[in-house]
Structure formats: structure tokens, C-alpha cells
Design a protein around this nucleic acid. Sequence first.
DNA 1: CTTGATAACTCAATTGGTTTGACTTAATCC
DNA 2: GGATTAAGTCAAACCAATTGAGTTATCAAG
Lengths: 390, 390
Amino acid sequence: MSLPLLPPGSNAERSRAYNRGLVLGHVRRAGASGRAEIARASGLSTQAVSNIIGELVAEGWLYEAGRRTGGRGLPAVTYAIDGAAGTAFGIELRPNAVLCALIDLDGRALYTDRVAVSRADPGHVVQLVSQLLERALSNSRTKVARVLGAGVVMPGPFGKTGLSGFLTELPGWEGLDAQALFAEVLDMAVTVENDANAAAMAERVSGVAAGLSSYAFLYFGTGIGLGLVSGGTIFRGAFGNAGEIGHVPAPFEGGLKPLEEIASRMALTTALRRAGEAAETVTDLDRLFEQRHPAMMAWIEGARPALSHAVHIVENLYDPEAVIMGGALPARLLQHLTDTIPLPSLSVSNRADRNCPRLLAGTAGRMTATHGAAALVINQTLTPSLGLAT
Amino acid sequence: MSLPLLPPGSNAERSRAYNRGLVLGHVRRAGASGRAEIARASGLSTQAVSNIIGELVAEGWLYEAGRRTGGRGLPAVTYAIDGAAGTAFGIELRPNAVLCALIDLDGRALYTDRVAVSRADPGHVVQLVSQLLERALSNSRTKVARVLGAGVVMPGPFGKTGLSGFLTELPGWEGLDAQALFAEVLDMAVTVENDANAAAMAERVSGVAAGLSSYAFLYFGTGIGLGLVSGGTIFRGAFGNAGEIGHVPAPFEGGLKPLEEIASRMALTTALRRAGEAAETVTDLDRLFEQRHPAMMAWIEGARPALSHAVHIVENLYDPEAVIMGGALPARLLQHLTDTIPLPSLSVSNRADRNCPRLLAGTAGRMTATHGAAALVINQTLTPSLGLAT
DNA sequence: CTTGATAACTCAATTGGTTTGACTTAATCC
DNA sequence: GGATTAAGTCAAACCAATTGAGTTATCAAG
């Protein structure tokens, strides 16, 4: 095998790019800020920050957001991120549908769409996505600023692994370089990621994880996945498949079963079907949950210990600031689960000095992964990094 | 809470430091290399590499290691790392002993020592460590080059968590800032880490993980811990306690029990004691294993499925290049375990294009964690990073 | 044995970006 | 109304990487 690629060397221009990210990142987290404040937080000189801010204002990323009042000396002129300064296009590929979203820097959706497809045939899908982008650009409510790039979400795992051939995979895409394919057709930077990781990023860009930089996201797609954000960026593992929690054994009725067969939407619909309920959509599930349908409640009872087990593992292995649950389940059901899943006490996350709950419900809604695809791109622009996007 | 500290801004000097790390890191992995080769691999210009090499040679880090032969054009002058150019001091604190090691850049031990203590009283220990450093410097076989820093290993988890109060903790050190304490007494840069993480690093600096950059290390200390190296650096999680696998439930005799109570040295000695064998040392364990003592073999039978389960979780959550097992067990027993633990097929690590075994036995020996403490420092010098050490 | 191709490397000038230190401006405090 | 405090600007100095032209050493072909 060849040597693992080294991160690229650093020079003056890369330093600038990094420091720009530093400035933008600070403003994103702290809100409107003055030069001196950013300089203190980033370790740069005021002069450097000043130069960078000048550049960012000229390019439209930042706008002057008034002066600080009340302090002693000269009041600081503060700057904030102009949410409309850039957009990102998110694409989610499912076996039976293609979803897309155009979101701005603040994570607000300018346009979303969903097209059912009979098969996720690559040639066809690529065409379709190209059309969707055009449609998104012309139909979105506000005038669209520059598109920073596109994120593509498809079910993992990537590469041939022991988990290949499962239902969660996208047929017809094995061995294809989706990144290159979309990059060529859309003519922009493209990031490919699995659904759980993308969904995790959606919560950071415009959701409950806005203030967090290290957290884990339990994603209910067809199966169940785990997205991990560490230090503001996605943790991928050596081959991009970190977080494949679906096949990890979890306790069920005294024995062990893969988590995915207990606590996933697939498992839920199967259980409901056995009880004579065909629940195809999130709305169906929401109705059944509101009715406290016995089969639904029984599933919850069974899923709780398994999810508790999963949370236990995730907390002790990753030591995140919080665990978030989200995805293709009704918001009320998610909230109910986070409220009632027992949190193991033998956990490194069970600490006295916590400043946020151990378990949170995601807020990005049912198009989490699609938004997440776009959020990946937004996050890249707002987070300093010397490494290359992979 | 205050905002998370941003990584420091980047300037020309930090770029240089980063690029030096890039050069050293390449030479470390690839062995003696020429300027042009390093330039290609790092993305730097030959000129930049040339300047850096000049500096590194002048400072004694690199030495000229002959010319490449056989190629077309001008044969490259290659450079290699001078293992003797720097040393690191490693300290391991245990409840009943203090261990130390002085190792060089190649990971070779120049001096090791072990002092039994009745209690790991901070004041006393700090004194002792200071004496040990002096002894190490004067007693080591070769002339000691500059000491780059010290690594301190103590059992985790750090901070008050749901796992506090367990046997594995170091009494008297709760709430103490060990880093500051040792930094003052030793008057050098100090890194504090838990045993599993340090042990993992030992395998990278001078062990079976030399060629790996992302792997997980199952460490048999008193309990069992997990160290994770990702992209050449330790993965700590948000609060430094990632990898606390000991309390994760694992299958045992049809039920579930914390892994630590099944597959740890503690569990093994307890099992042996029940069978009337007092095995205090690694040598005792080695003897019993060689005799295929029934209690030993029974413990192995019980531990195997639990360890298999642990490997399964680690592989699917971290997606490492390999899982390594090591620590305070006899080498032959470790080898036996890695040879016979069943590897789950439903794993992202079960891939056709692997280039190393999924499960490996550690080679750093019984002082793994102590060596690892020093290895932390070595690794820092040889791995490029813009972030601050935490 | 010469000549051309190839590749590693050096030299000097240029470039991009940060820092430093002196200075200006505007608010609060007394 | 003057002292103090803090934010910000300007211009010069500095650091390190890149660029492009040139040098040196080897292999291969005629």
C-alpha cells in the first residue's frame, strides 16, 4: 500500500485561510464581535484580525453589526456573519427517492424538494440532481448568493466490508466514485458522507448542537446509524465507516440482538405491521404514537433498554458533550424516548459539572440528513482546518 | 461556561513548526528520504524542504544517510532521524509503585526504574519523580541528549464522573492538577494521559503500530481500558475520558456483565485465587498459562466472547486500521488470545482489502504504559499539529 | 566517448501574511 | 476637564514559502 497521504504543507496563504476560518468560527459561536475580542480569542494580533475582517466584509461574508456600548474605552465596532452570503446544496440519495435542499450560512432552508425514483440508477440520478440544482437556484425565495459546494448523503458503509449486501445499501452504486461523478456534473466542490454523519452536522449548523463541538448523534434512518462530531469536524475513522452501530449487539428480551433489529424505524414498522398497522410515513407514526397504540408502546418498551445500552457504549467510548437522537421518527416520539430512556450511571458522562443534558432530541426534523448534506459544506467554510476535505 | 478555546492563530513561525513536523513525520514513517521525495509527499516546495532539512541537520535531528542509487538523474542525498537527538521521560503512577523510563526518539529505552511506594501521596511522589529523573539522566548508558519533555500516566477517568470511586483510581490525587505540579518540579513540558492512551502510543513509537495512524488499543492494566489513536494523535473525547470500555456490558454465561469484571487482570487473578492459585506477577501468570492451568484456561474461555464483543464494538464505532491488545499480561497469553478470539463478521473491519490483521498483540511489553508516557512526548515532536497540547 | 534526457538540488528574487510599535479616536471615571 | 481605558489604524520590519533560472550528477542511447 502507498503511504497515507500527509496533510498538505502550510504556507502564508494557507495560514490566511486558516485564520479566516478562525475569525468566522468565532463570530459564528459568539455572535457579533469586535476586532480586539476576536484577536484575544484567536491569539492573532488585532492587526491581522483587522485585515481579515476587511477582506471578509469586502467579500460579503461579514457585515457591520453596530457598536458595543457601556464599556470603558472606544466602543468596539462589531461584525456578524451575513447568513445570505453563501449557500450550500444538499442531496440525499435513497433507494426510492432523491431529496435536496438549498440552505444558507445560517442553516435556513431556501428551497427543498423531493423526487420519487423507481431505482436509484446512477446515470438517471446524476441527471436529476443537476436539474434539481437549477430548480433550486431559480425557485428559491430570496436571491441566491454564491453556492459554496454540494454535499451528498448516501447510506454507508463505504467500501466492501462485512456489512455489505444489507438492505441499507444503495443498489447500483457499489464501487462508484460518487464524489467525482457529482463534482463533474454540478461543477462545484462535492463532499460525500453517510447519513448519520450528515445528520449530525445538521444539528450543529442549525439545531440543538449549535453550541457543541463534540457530540454523538444517533440517527434513525432505515436502520440506525451514529454520527460523531469531534472538535467541530466529523470523525470518520480510518476508512470512513466509524459509527456503524446498527450491528452492535444490544439487550433484547433477555438475549442479544443487533441494535438495528430492535431500535430502528425498520424494526418499528415491522412490529406495527405484525399488529396489522401499515405505517409508511412519519405522519402515520405520529398518529399511532399520539393514540398510544399498543404495538407502538410495546416497541418503545423493547427499544428502551437497547437504546440505553447504545447510549452507554457511545458515552464511554467517545466521551461526548452530549448524545443526540434524531432522524426519521416523529418529533414527539423522539422527545418521549429521550425523556424516558434510562441513563446508565456507570458512565463517564455522568458528571456533576455538566452544562447540558446527556441525551437530547434532534431538532432538524425529518429532512435532517438532506439538510445535513448541505450543512457539511457550511461547516467546512466556517471551521478552520488545515487538512484537505476527504 | 466559557467558550471553548480556539486553536491559536497561524503565522509564519507556526507554519514552520508545522512543516518541520511534516518533514520529520515523513522521515519517521518512510525511513531515510531525499528532499525531493519529501517535497512531493508533503506538498511543500523542494526549496522549503531544503531549508527545513538544513535547520534540522544543524540542530541535530537529522543526519545525512547516504545517497539513493540506481535512479536516473542526480542521486538524492537522503536523511534519517537521529534517534539519539532527543529523549523523553515517562512516568507511570500506580497506587503502590512509581515507574519511569527514559526513551530516545527511536523509542529505545535508555533507562528504566521502578520504586515501590506504600501510598501514592502527591507530595512524596513528586519528590521521588524528581530524583528518578536525575538518576535516569546520570545512569543511562549513553550520553543523554536534550530531554524534550515528560509524560505522566495515571489511571483515569479524569474529573468527577459516574465511574469515580472505583478501584482503578489513584487515591489522594482527586482534583489535583498533576500537569502543573510535575511541570514545575521537573521544569519541562509535561503531558498527562491515562494508561490506555499512553500504552497505545507506545505501540506507535516503537511497537507493532509503527506503520499505523488510526488504531485502537485494548489495554490490560488493573482493569481494562481502551486507547484510541486517530490520524497519529490520541482521541480524547470532550473531557479526556474517551475509551472507558471497562464498564460496558459484555456477554458472560448467558447474561451481561461489565467487561472489566470478565476480561481484566483483576478478573483473572480473582478467578485464580478462587482456584487456590495466588498469581501476583506477570511471571506467575506466564507459568500458569504454560502449564495450561485449568482455572487459567477456564478464564480464557469466559473472556473470549466478551473480548470478541468488545472488538466488535470498537471496530464498528471507531473503524480503526487494527485493534491491538496489550498490557500487563504475559506475551504468550496475549498472543494466544489474539489468535483465538473470534472476529465478528458483521463488522466494517471485515473487509477484503485489508493489509494488516484485524487483531494484533502488542509488543511493547510489561512496561507498556510507562514507555507510553514517554512515547506521548516523542510522538508530539514527530507529528505535525497546529493545535495546542491539552 | 560524447550527447541528451532526467532528476535532485541550490541561489536569489518575489510574494503573501503576520507582528510590532507608534499613533489616533472615543468612551467612562473622578 | 483631565486622566484612564480600550479599540482600532498606519507603516515598517520580519518570517517563511514559492518561483524560476541555473548547476550538478547520473543513466541511456548513438
